[in-house]
Nucleic acid binder design. Structure first.
Lengths: 349, 349
DNA sequence: CCTGAGTAGTAAACCGATTTAACGCTCAAG
DNA sequence: CTTGAGCGTTAAATCGGTTTACTACTCAGG
């Protein structure tokens, strides 16, 4: 049971001070080439690797970034948009030689988990941390960056212009003549569904829809809402099944691409043509759905970029806590074929 | 820019030594109740939290467990079996107040990532680490536990009896009279497909199939193979589409439930009844597919248990490096309805 | 020959905790 | 009155590095 190899062992073997060994790993230019080479050789044959923990303590930096997600890991990862954001974050970590600690929200212990997570900063993805949570971060004076949630002006954030994107999307829908819409939502409070409240990205999207609808107040628009706890395609299929019995709308407006793809499946099953018999719009523009035919009309939310920007904001916090920026990522309409034009030959017309 | 609150600040404020403060957090019973209470009160109002890194260094334990997965995080998490294993691992971590570090396999930097990951041990999930990798772990003298991969007798492992499970499953298939089979595989080397080589769990499954087939050498059995790079249902659908043109087999034997569920979709699309027109078997028995009708006949692989056992083995390594165990998790046939009985009314009969 | 600017390397302080060994005190037993 | 056990507390060593300040030495310029 030999104890761990330390920097002293290498120093002794190489006949230098431990400072020299440290320099060999951290500031090679401060050493004469010959010495440097000797030290590196020796640590290689001995198999020395600087202890990460000790290094972190001395450097006052853990060299790793904490990422907090709502719900459990598996739940979060099925969502393509999360995957994209993770790629953005991962790219940053790789470039800067950071490692990534997913702080798993084990039931209720999230606080405790954060308490003794050795991270230099925390990025939250898609949810608003609680008061006590913020408090804890403050005590440990850990910088925080939120994505898809804005706490106040003191905490840097990356958000997506959900409201504007939703508004523009629905304007496009209405602009093509559709008047009988079905909006697939997630479970939200009634006032959120009406588009009157809420700061979550989902409610902001509903607010955008509401805004576009209000612009047409005079005209007759029929809107129905359906919601499902599950984002999965299958759940949307069954929702649509109910809708089928109630009489189909002209267009189904979704809050995510996953929902929309459920509608695709439903349509195929019922032999409905998209968009002639039933038009569909998605939300997010996840790259993973590119293969769908007809191409989905949706609003692209650049997840990779969001992840990358969050890291940049974190970096700013590390450099200087004074500057706090709030970035809003622009939406980008993806003109597919699934919306089409409200044709004159529409049966009800 | 006040510096971090340290144990000394608390000690000074409370009028005790820093040892006492440390005891307050780690061995409360060594302090007089009054002193304990005072210290805790003061650290609370001051907002003191012991620095995780310093604590780790002193304790010579990082209090967190590294988990290595093949491919990227998102890729791994779409697989229900991974999700189950993660739950098993997560449960252990939660109970023992460990935190979980996913060491993300950022392109090629996996080695570097491991090098300065502050973990007490590493569990690999579903792949065999390289030589250099083992070397590095050795240098840092970090314990390793492998799941679904057995390196040698010195490294603890958890494996599933893939071969036996596959053999029993195929025996059941053949035992019900089926003779025209189609085996859906993943991309593997030709000799693996024939069931002659390989140590990966997939090839071990194929070996089990081969074994069951060999037992029937005398009788006529028609076996065809199809493979797909993607595990997703949709890919299997298109595979089946080709099969459809080539003439349908009696039964499709899959290497995963995801594949099998693709066959379900295909069958529904073509109006084929399961199992009357086309029988199907899965593999893994992921809990997430419980809702399928008819209930799938499959072999259940208890992912939660595997994760839990891996953690137990890791725990043993932490206690005492001498004992090394190799656990083999038993398979469990799930008798569903999707295999049925090869009926006498089969058209070709 | 003296000065001043680099160079190469080192000693010692430090990072923020844990933990061991010892200390002073009280009180019951001998 | 001593001895010694037990309790509450602390000083000091330790964990394994990084970093600052300083020393010794070399060499070019005046």
């Amino acid at each position: 049971m030999k104890s761990r190899l330390t920097i002293l062992d290498v120093a002794r073997e190489a006949g230098v001070s431990k400072t020299a060994v440290s320099f060999a790993f951290n500031s090679p230019q401060r050493l004469a080439p010959a010495t440097l080479k000797k030290i590196l050789n020796i640590s290689d044959t001995l198999g020395y690797v600087p202890d990460p923990t000790a290094r972190r303590l001395a450097r006052r930096s853990s060299g790793n970034l904490g990422v907090l997600i709502p719900q459990t890991l598996p739940e979060a990862f099925v969502h393509p948009h999360f995957q994209e954001m993770f790629q953005g974050i991962g790219e940053f970590c790789e470039r800067r030689e950071f490692s990534l600690t997913l702080i798993p929200p084990l039931q209720g212990c999230l606080l405790k988990a954060v308490r003794n997570a050795a991270v230099d900063g925390v990025i939250t993805l898609g949810f608003t941390p609680s008061e006590t949570f913020l408090d804890l971060l403050g005590k440990r004076s850990l910088p925080l960056v939120t994505v898809d949630s804005r706490i106040d002006s003191t905490i840097p954030s990356v958000t997506f212009e959900d409201r504007e994107a939703a508004r523009d999307l629905l304007r496009a829908v209405l602009g093509r003549g559709y008047r009988n819409l079905h909006i697939l939502t997630f479970p939200v409070a009634p006032e959120e569904v009406r588009g009157n409240a809420g700061s979550r990205s989902l409610s902001r999207r509903l607010q955008g829809f509401r805004q576009a609808l209000d612009e047409l107040k005079s005209e007759n628009v029929f809107v129905s809402y359906g919601s499902s706890r599950v984002t999965a395609e299958s759940a949307c299929e069954s929702l649509m099944e109910q809708q089928w019995e109630a009489g189909l709308p002209q267009v189904v407006v979704c809050l995510s691409d996953a929902q929309a793809s459920g509608v695709y499946v439903f349509a195929e099953k019922k032999g409905l043509r998209i968009p002639e018999d039933l038009a569909v719009t998605g939300f997010d523009g996840s790259l993973s759905l590119k293969h769908l035919r007809p191409v989905m009309t949706t609003v692209r939310q650049p997840g990779f970029l969001k992840g990358k920007l969050a890291c940049e904001l974190m970096d700013e916090q590390w450099r200087d806590r004074a500057t706090v920026r709030h970035l809003v990522v622009k939406a980008h309409m993806v003109e597919g074929k699934s919306l089409g034009q409200m044709s004159k030959s529409w049966p009800n017309d």
